[in-house]
Nucleic acid binder design. Structure first.
Lengths: 206, 206
DNA sequence: GTCTATATAAGGATAGAC
DNA sequence: GTCTATCCTTATATAGAC
C-alpha cells in the first residue's frame, strides 16, 4: 500500500479529476471526492490546504506532461528544416487527443480542461497562463513561419478557431458517437485525423 | 411596474442567466439570483418550482427565438434554388453570434450555452435535443445537398468540428481581444466572417 | 499521516401569514 | 403574488486525539 501511485494524495487527485469532469468544480464536493477516493474528509485539507489548491494540482499533474510532449513533437516537426503544416498541427493536437485516450484518468481530465475554459475563472486563467503560456507562444511562432502570407491578426483568428474545435473535440461535446465495432483508440485517432485535415484546409485558405 | 418585461419572473430569468454564465449552474445559488433580481427568495419556487426548472426556462427564453431565426435564414438561403455553402453556414452561425451581441443578456446567454455543453448533463441534453434537435437535422440535410461528394460520416465529422468552433467563438473563450478602437458589434461581425470562411474551406476540402 | 468530532456557513425548499 | 421564518441538508474547514 506504499506504492506512490496509489498514495492518499494520488487517490484524491484521481477522484477529484473524475468528479470535476462529471459535476464541475462547484458541483463536486470534497465529501464526494474523499468518499470516492476512500480517504478521510480531512485528508484534502491536510495534503492540499484548500479546494482551490486541489483544483490547481489536478491541472498540474497532467499539463506538465502534455505540454512537454507538445514541445517535443514541435521540435521534431521543425527539425528537418522543411516543416509541414500538418506536422505542426499534429504536434499540437495529437498529444491532447492521446491524453483523452489514457484510461487512467486522462479522458476525464480533458473534460476538466474544457470546463476550465467555460469557467472563465480568473484565478485558473492566470495559473494556466503563467505555467503554460510559453507553449502557445512557441506554436504561434511556428505557424507564423509556415504561413507567411497571413498577417498576424488573421493568423491569430484562425488559430483561435482551431483551439476551439480541439477543445470541443477533446471533451467529446459533439454528437458523433463511436460505432459499436470501433475501439476507443481508433475513434480518437480518426477524430484527430479529421480535425487536422479540416484545420489545415482552414488555415491555408487564401 | 406592470411592464411584463420587468416582471418578477423576467427579472429572475435575467439575473439567473447572468449568474449562471459567470459562476455555472451549481456555482450560482438561488439566494444570489434572487438578491440580484431584487425579489424574494421564495419567488423562485413559486414561479418555477425548482432550480432545475428555472435553468430550463433560461434556455427556452432564448433558444426559441434563436432557432426560429436560423430556420428562417436557412429557408432564405435555400429558396433561390442555387444555395451557396457560405450562405447556409451564415444561416447557422450569424443568428448565434447576433445573440451574443444582444446587450440585454444575450451575451451572457451564449456563455450559459457553452457551459451546458461542458456539463454533459443528461437532463439538459434531453431537454435541448427534444426541443431543438429538429433544427440541427434540417441543417445537416441542407449541407448534405451542398456537399454530395462527402459521405455521411465525413460530413457529420466536419459539422461537428464547425459546431465546436462556433460554441467556442460565441462564448469568447479565445485569446483574441477586441482592439480599443473597435466596437463590440464590429468585433463580432469579423469573428463571424472569419469563422464562416474557415469553416467553408474545411468543409469543401476534398 | 489519519481519524472523529465539530465549528460555522450556505445551500434548496417549504409553511403559513398577509 | 410576496413576505418572514425556518426546516433540513450539505458544504468547507479545523481542532485535537491517536
Amino acid at each position: 500500500m506504499n506504492d506512490p501511485r496509489f498514495s492518499t494524495k494520488q487517490r484524491i487527485l484521481g477522484a477529484a479529476e473524475d468528479l470535476f469532469a462529471r459535476r464541475g468544480f462547484a458541483g463536486a464536493s470534497l465529501r464526494q471526492v474523499t468518499t470516492a477516493a476512500k480517504v478521510n474528509l480531512a485528508a484534502v485539507n491536510y495534503h492540499f490546504g484548500s479546494k482551490d489548491r486541489l483544483i490547481e494540482e489536478v491541472f498540474r499533474r497532467r499539463l506538465d506532461e502534455l505540454n512537454a510532449r507538445r514541445l517535443a513533437a514541435l521540435k521534431g516537426a521543425m527539425a528537418g528544416g522543411n516543416p509541414q503544416l500538418a506536422e505542426v498541427l499534429a504536434a499540437f493536437i495529437k498529444p491532447a487527443l492521446d491524453l483523452s485516450l489514457d484510461r487512467e484518468g486522462g479522458s476525464a481530465f480533458v473534460r476538466v480542461l474544457a470546463r476550465a475554459y467555460a469557467e472563465h475563472n480568473e484565478r485558473l486563467r492566470r495559473f494556466l497562463s503563467d505555467n503554460y503560456g510559453h507553449v502557445l507562444r512557441e506554436f504561434a511562432a511556428a505557424f507564423a513561419r509556415l504561413l507567411p502570407r497571413l498577417d498576424k491578426e488573421e493568423l491569430y483568428w484562425r488559430l483561435d478557431i482551431v483551439a476551439g474545435a480541439l477543445t470541443y473535440a477533446m471533451a467529446d461535446f459533439g454528437v458523433i458517437k463511436r460505432r459499436s465495432g470501433q475501439s476507443e483508440r481508433d475513434f480518437r485517432e480518426r477524430a484527430a485525423e479529421h480535425l487536422i485535415r479540416f484545420a489545415a484546409a482552414g488555415l491555408k485558405e487564401e
